[in-house]
């Protein structure tokens, strides 16, 4: 069996002196759509950020394509994360935010400009591409964050509550784009508390606070 696109083994994370979760082992395969659910404080955000390689876990390891992240940090570029609070640069326009991510990944200026157009348009932001982030509504900002993650065409896309600010119509658009990642061969992991979103995924992982994770089947 081929290696899972992303996996973690015996992952334990702490924050503020408290244990968030202990001894968690999960696998995410290419083409899978997984929903991670659980009440507030159960550690969804912490799990996603650790999986994205943004901070070393207290113990355990994260592997991308079977290779531990600790051994080869450059693998982080294959995992994209949509932050819960978007993490956008407020003084840049929507298009510039997407371009910056592309430029940071090494594309040239022209390439970045070209590549940013599509995802923004597909998420209904074509008219707002040149608006500064701080002039956009919460929902629009969230979609820019999603576009930014999508543009990079990552192997694994982790999304932390990506539809929290969207109204019904846009929720559908965002979900469609995210789910399409799996169609292209990537792995999609969405942290959410929305049952509708969970319903569209292949499987659900439920996290219960301060206990080992249970892999719930659908």
């Amino acid at each position: 069996m081929s290696e899972p696109a992303l996996s973690c083994q015996s992952l334990t994370c702490e924050a503020g002196g408290r244990e968030i979760f202990r001894d968690l082992s999960l696998e995410f395969r290419a083409g899978e759509r997984v929903a991670v659910m659980g009440p507030s404080g159960s550690g969804k955000t912490t799990l996603l950020t650790t999986l994205a390689g943004l901070g070393p876990p207290a113990s355990g390891q994260v592997l991308v394509g079977g290779v531990p992240l600790a051994r080869d940090p450059s693998l982080r570029s294959q995992v994209a994360l949509v932050f819960q609070s978007y993490g956008l640069l407020t003084l840049l326009t929507a298009a510039e935010n997407v371009e910056v991510a592309l430029r940071a990944a090494g594309r040239t200026g022209a390439e970045a400009m070209a590549a940013a157009v599509g995802p923004l348009a597909r998420l209904g932001l074509a008219g707002h591409a040149d608006h500064l982030i701080e002039e956009l509504s919460g929902g629009q900002q969230q979609r820019v964050a999603v576009a930014r993650a999508l543009t990079l065409g990552p192997r694994v896309l982790l999304a932390d509550e990506p539809t929290a600010e969207q109204d019904a119509g846009h929720r559908e658009i965002v979900l469609t784009e995210l789910l399409a990642v799996a169609d292209r061969g990537g792995a999609l992991v969405i942290a959410t508390h929305d049952d509708e979103v969970a319903a569209r995924c292949d499987r659900v992982v439920e996290l219960r606070p301060a206990v080992r994770g249970a892999v719930g089947a659908r």
Partner: peptide, 12 residues
């Protein structure tokens, strides 16, 4: 926060 996010998306 923004800068941290930028670092997270791959900026060196």
């Amino acid at each position: 926060y923004e800068l941290a996010a930028l670092a997270a998306t791959g900026a060196k």
